[in-house]
Amino acid sequence: MKRLRSALTVLLGLALGLTLQAATPRTVSVAAAADLQFALVDLQAAFTKVHPDIDLALTYGSSGNFYAQIVNGAPFDLFLSADETYPQKLMDAGLADRASAFRYSRGRLVLWVPAASPIPLERLGLKALLDPAAKKVAIANPRHAPYGRAAEAALAKLGLLDAVRPRLVYGENIAQTAQFVQTGAADIGILALSLVKASAMSGLGRRFELPLDAYPPLEQGGVVLTRTRDRAAAWAFRDFLRGPEGVAILKRYGFLVDGR
């Protein structure tokens, strides 16, 4: 009994200590398409230099998943989608601020294999998907990831979908898809250029860029959400992404930025 009581006292003390949290500064919660996960590290560093008073809380995932979460009340301030459909739907539902909508880039698809892969990607180009060594082909889940939808559309347009479908494996989002191929769990993947250009992948594999006319343009839009607690801070990061510094970083990761 004594032991039980002292154990309880310790636990209670621990709980109280853990419940007292430090006051948080201004925070912008960003729901970001997973193709931004490396570019946003640089963007965050550059943004913090200009706005040291604003913290960015970054969550990566598939845009469709974020859309569902935001509809269910997830407390994000800014949504950076991998397409423009989900931001549009949020604006139509009154959950996003129409005046804040902006296009930050156009996403690009690449075929990617690990450096040691026997698939001669450079020689085969798109036909690499039919190579016998391509036993597992990774794409993002087309049901809720725009990159997956674009990859599927490209396969269909190129007439490869039926041949490739039995070998497809689906990542939860484009970052997990890239990780499947990077670890060798899948032999080849249709990935986002912005991921394979990052240092975590760039030296580790070979890539082939899909022609831009092979898939419907992946226009990528961002929007400030109406339930944001700190509109000014959310707008500050939105404007930073559109400014010269933000655009330069996005370009470095292979995002095409409109007219700039």
Binding site: T24, T27, S29, A57, L58, T59, Q69, A74, P75
Partner: peptide, 9 residues
């Protein structure tokens, strides 16, 4: 939870 840093991650 939705993987929010500092809140639900």
């Amino acid at each position: 939870g939705g993987n929010l840093p500092g809140r639900t991650r």
